[in-house]
Amino acid sequence: MSNIAKAFENGKAFIPFITCGDPDLETTAKCVVEMQKAGASLVELGIPFSDPTAEGPVIMEASLRALEAGCTTDKVFEMVRKLRTELGVTIPMVFMTYANVVFSYGIERFCQKSSEVGIDGFILPDVPYEEKAEFDSVCKQYGIDLISLIAPTSHERISMIAKEASGFIYIVSSLGVTGVRSNITTDIPSLCAAVKSSTDVPCAIGFGISTPEQAANMSKSADGVIVGSAIVKIVAQYGKDAPEQVGAYVKSMVDAIK
């Protein structure tokens, strides 16, 4: 059984995202520790990419800040190693990044290093079902789940994608890019039901979720709720003082979905 499954064993999972290296990796590491303390079930670590085409302005700007501050893939691996060996983080962690970050590092080398430092899965938004074999075949050798994404436009593709999914399924709540939305108009219950009719793999919803009310609402249909931009905004606002704020926010979201 994949380690990621543990995240879904105790009720609804809250899954926070953070852009690694914004403002620096020490702050990122402290935020992850706070997230675990606050009850997060799984953490998504964003490895910054120069041209993140699936991101809205909040995560895009955080990625550029992180890169300018000197964040690299190797430094992120070191941070993860530290989280696992020194800082007591035991909840599952996945990398969220873009195909070229993995490809340019060498898919094999990237998977090997990820598994060695204690990463459980990858989310690659620019690797759809049709292109996943090149990555997934290597991921499987290293016990890493390549997370499948399902969008409101997936329609008849849902069962094909869901049947091969592992870890969890990332349900994209809305059209467009990541970012806070006041209103999510997709028929989430139907989308989740369609996914669940094809697989037993847990599903979590992300894109546009920021308030405890939205999270509570989403968790009625899905097994977990993913929040990115709202957290990245807190980090942008508080900088090195963000960990405590991030912890408090995660706690409010965890409470909302329990």
Partner: peptide, 18 residues
Amino acid sequence: SKGRFGIHGGQYIPETLM
């Protein structure tokens, strides 16, 4: 994977656009 020119090409885009 579709639309290959040798090893190049493909469709590396978000699921939303597939």
